[in-house]
């Protein structure tokens, strides 16, 4: 197997950069089909890889020549060597997205596009260094597992949100980042993978109504279709009743922190934790700035100003007056 992977790497290396990128994209698309147990037809692959039908076919042909993919009865599948390439690309992609989310102020909708460019140019060593620098994260900001250096990662979990039963609590397991415009709408509403929700009853065919981390969200079908959901794990609790977001606390009222939500990531998350926004801390909403700008909260004796979108990512339990 080792020899085969070297020869296919060589075959890949011989291709022009654009061609190699197309082959890598189509291999990654194949890997996704494999995971979702979709039939990998050519049209489907082209669309998933972001390539046109013609270009997708050409890339599949090249992958077959290089011994990276096989075709039988109209369905394509990965060879072991092809899977190795696809996993490597997936690892580079998800690590890059994690890095962008944690260390830059790029809007969430731009992570995917950037990562898509970078994934093809990173060498194995650079990818490993990236993983080291990030502390070997297990999940990317979309909630997808990041393959380890050995290519190990669990199968994707969960089911489509649209088929989730009403009244049952769950967790957003994955948010698809394509098409970017729709993903950007979810990100702008502060909805990220890892948030807990309960689906409420709603009229048929109007998308769904959710309570996501104590906030009611009406979600049209096109947005709900991006989301996969899973059941709560054994060590995850439901959102307690009466909880709300820190941004919903009236001025002068106090609350106890329950959790920092997944939308608060990277340096900002560490900073808020450092400042004392940890479960159990008592917080008082003390000041509002003019023009509906940031609000100031007293935490552990200091007064900290946060913008509204940040305060929205803190789940609290208001104190009874």
């Amino acid at each position: 197997m080792k020899r085969e992977s070297i020869s296919s790497d060589e075959a890949l290396a011989k291709l022009k950069l654009v061609e190699r990128e197309a082959v890598e994209d189509v291999l990654r698309a194949l890997l996704e089909c494999e995971h979702r147990r979709h039939e990998a037809t050519e049209a489907h692959l082209g669309a998933l890889g972001g390539l046109g039908r013609e270009e997708g076919l050409r890339a599949l042909g090249r992958a077959k020549e290089a011994g990276l993919a096989d075709e039988s009865a109209q369905a394509w599948r990965l060879t072991d060597a092809g899977r190795a390439v696809a996993v490597r690309i997936m690892r580079a992609h998800r690590l890059t997205e994690t890095q962008l989310a944690r260390t830059t102020s790029l809007p969430a909708a731009e992570w995917h596009g950037r990562a898509h460019q970078i994934e093809h140019v990173l060498s194995d060593i650079e990818v490993d260094r990236l993983a080291d620098a990030l502390g070997h994260p297990r999940y990317d900001p979309h909630g997808d597992p990041i393959p380890t250096r050995e290519g190990d990662f669990p199968a994707p979990e969960g089911q489509a949100l649209l088929s989730w039963p009403e009244g049952r609590p769950g967790v957003i397991a994955h948010i698809e980042d394509e098409p970017p415009a729709l993903f950007a709408r979810l990100a702008a509403r502060g909805i990220f993978a890892g948030m807990r929700f309960v689906r409420l009853a709603s009229a048929a065919n109007t998308g769904c109504v959710l309570v996501i981390e104590a906030r009611r969200e009406e979600m049209p079908s096109e947005l709900a279709a991006l989301i996969r959901a899973r059941a709560l794990l054994a060590d995850e609790d439901e959102v307690p009743s009466g909880a709300c977001r820190l941004s919903d606390i009236a001025r002068g009222a106090s609350a106890e922190v329950l959790a920092l939500l997944p939308g608060c990531i990277g340096a900002e998350r560490s900073r808020l934790l450092d400042l004392g926004f940890v479960p159990g801390s008592r917080i008082e909403h003390e000041l509002d700035s003019p023009l509906d700008g940031p609000a100031a909260f007293r935490v552990r004796g200091t007064l900290i100003a946060l913008r509204r979108t940040q305060a929205e990512q803190v789940l609290v339990q208001p104190e009874k007056v």
Binding site: S105, L106, P107, L275, P294, I304, A305, Q310
Partner: peptide
């Protein structure tokens, strides 16, 4: 780009 976050001690 979009405005990032802001946490300031008063």
């Amino acid at each position: 780009g979009e405005a990032s976050t802001f946490s300031l001690e008063l």
